[in-house]
């Protein structure tokens, strides 16, 4: 881990390769692991923060964002049915803009900071509140935030532990959709 961090810190372009290597290693090692949560740490995302809308979505009372509870491809009250899908970033953008779910059409890929807001730092494998977001993969989920240092790169969050990583938009990653929040399209500037 330390060696990897040194690599990332020293070489901006090489960080992409290090991130990809990490992705490969974790992808191979963690088909579906058992979640571990530390009872001695405070919850970052307690269940009481979320309103279950009963339609496959939850609304976060702090950020006002509405999230799909299941990763794309999964359905059901506990996300127990369906087959989880991975997307290139371009396909994820298209899937989000075409999505109609819970009567809404304004679904999108979360920004890196929005996706960061549902990391549960007391848990790993996956680092998320599993009661609110069942069957979350212990792997990487797309954000809509570009990686400024590399033309074809974007940010993602590895829900194995909550690390923020970057990779080529050609890579196939998981997707969780979001809508609403305190941001409005095209204002504030």
């Amino acid at each position: 881990m330390v060696v990897k961090l040194k690599g990332i810190a020293h070489m901006n372009t090489k960080s992409m390769a290090a991130g990809l290597l990490m992705l490969l290693l974790l992808g191979a090692a963690s088909a579906q692991a058992t979640q571990t949560c530390r009872s001695d740490l405070n919850a970052a995302t307690p269940s009481g923060r979320f309103v279950n809308n009963g339609d496959g979505t939850v609304t976060d009372a702090i950020t006002n964002l509405t999230w799909k509870r299941c990763s794309e491809g999964l359905v059901g009250n506990s996300c127990e049915s369906g087959t989880v899908i991975t997307y290139t970033w371009s396909d994820a953008i298209k899937a989000a803009s075409a999505a109609v779910f819970a009567g809404k059409k304004d679904w999108r890929i979360p920004t890196i900071q929005e996706l960061d807001s549902i990391i549960e730092y007391k848990c790993t494998m996956p680092a998320i509140n599993a009661e609110i977001f069942p069957v979350t993969r212990t792997s990487n989920y797309w954000s809509s935030t570009p990686f400024a240092g590399y033309p074809g790169g974007s940010w993602n969050i590895n829900f194995n532990d909550g690390a923020h990583e970057s990779c080529s938009r050609n890579w196939n990653l998981y997707l969780r959709l979001v809508r609403g929040g305190n941001l409005q399209e095209g204002v504030c500037r």
Partner: peptide, 25 residues
């Protein structure tokens, strides 16, 4: 200051070269 749940000997870090968020011993 944030503890890294997976390893008590690690804490979270931010590397501001490009915005990487991860952990280190």
């Amino acid at each position: 200051a944030s503890p890294y749940a997976a390893n008590p000997n690690f804490a979270w870090i931010v590397i501001f070269d490009d915005g990487y968020v991860g952990s280190c011993v």
